[in-house]
Design a protein around this nucleic acid. Structure first.
Lengths: 132, 132
DNA sequence: CTTGACCTTGCCATGATGGTAAGGTTCATA
DNA sequence: TATGAACCTTACCATCATGGCAAGGTCAAG
């Protein structure tokens, strides 16, 4: 299986698969005589694992750790849970920040007449916020 | 007013103030004989405007436009509102993505015993999700 | 005159991803 | 058999906002 097929099979881009290899997420695979990377079913499973973890927002650094735990029969699920909880906390923090942005943006937009005039509540708020 | 004082007065870093100047957000200021940037009250207001817009998540490219509108007496609030609405849409999109992440992470974490054993619902989910 | 706090420019790094360029390989078809 | 399309390789640059560091100039107080 060449890298293009591995990309199709996993939903990743060939570019990213090479990047994951170079970043140490993935052991360098076998190569064909011509130097093409060859992917075995096991490699595909690892790539799918990476993709699912990326969808959940885990960083590549986190995923290095999760993969090591996954492949370690002596692992402790306590450690895995800690990694996930730490990431969840970061996600929740970003959610709060974005929510605050959304609230303020909605208020500003609601106060803007959009009648083509020069008076603008949005610019007023940015220039001298009445509430923060 | 030197750049350090301007930074303190606006809550920005000196580094970023220089960056904003180089990025065209800010007209190059006057310089002292020694080449130190000199900030007038008007410059401080612009910097505060930039900071508030950054807090709301506007990109530097957006802020270039917002500053131009702010300083243009012939502006149309319709345009300003469009910029803000576009940005709000992006914020809402990211909120949705993060919310989906949070939901899945919470479910996975709830199913993890964290008893120090090797069995782990989190790794199971990443390896072969039962639901997505 | 020295010292410490400030300023200058310039370069490199982050993190995940995309793009492009220059070149080699493989395979099907004309 | 030759050619071209579709694939692969590596290497470099760009994104975006921000931080860090280094080497050097400036200023004010002691």
């Amino acid at each position: 299986m060449n890298i293009g097929q591995a990309a199709t099979a996993t939903g990743l881009s060939a570019k990213m698969i090479r990047h994951y290899e170079q970043s140490g997420l993935l052991q360098p695979t076998q190569r064909s005589e011509a130097g093409y990377r060859q992917y075995q079913p096991k490699d595909i499973e690892i790539l799918k694992f990476i993709r699912r973890a990326r969808v959940l927002g885990f960083s590549l650094a986190d995923i290095v750790g999760l993969l090591a735990l996954w492949q370690n029969p002596q692992r402790s699920n306590t450690v895995v849970k800690q990694v996930a909880q730490q990431h969840l906390a970061e996600v929740e923090l970003k959610l709060q920040e974005l929510h605050a942005m959304k609230q303020t943006l909605q208020q500003m937009i609601a106060q803007c007449a959009a009648d083509g005039g020069a008076h603008c509540a949005i610019l007023q708020h940015l220039a001298k916020p009445t509430r923060s």
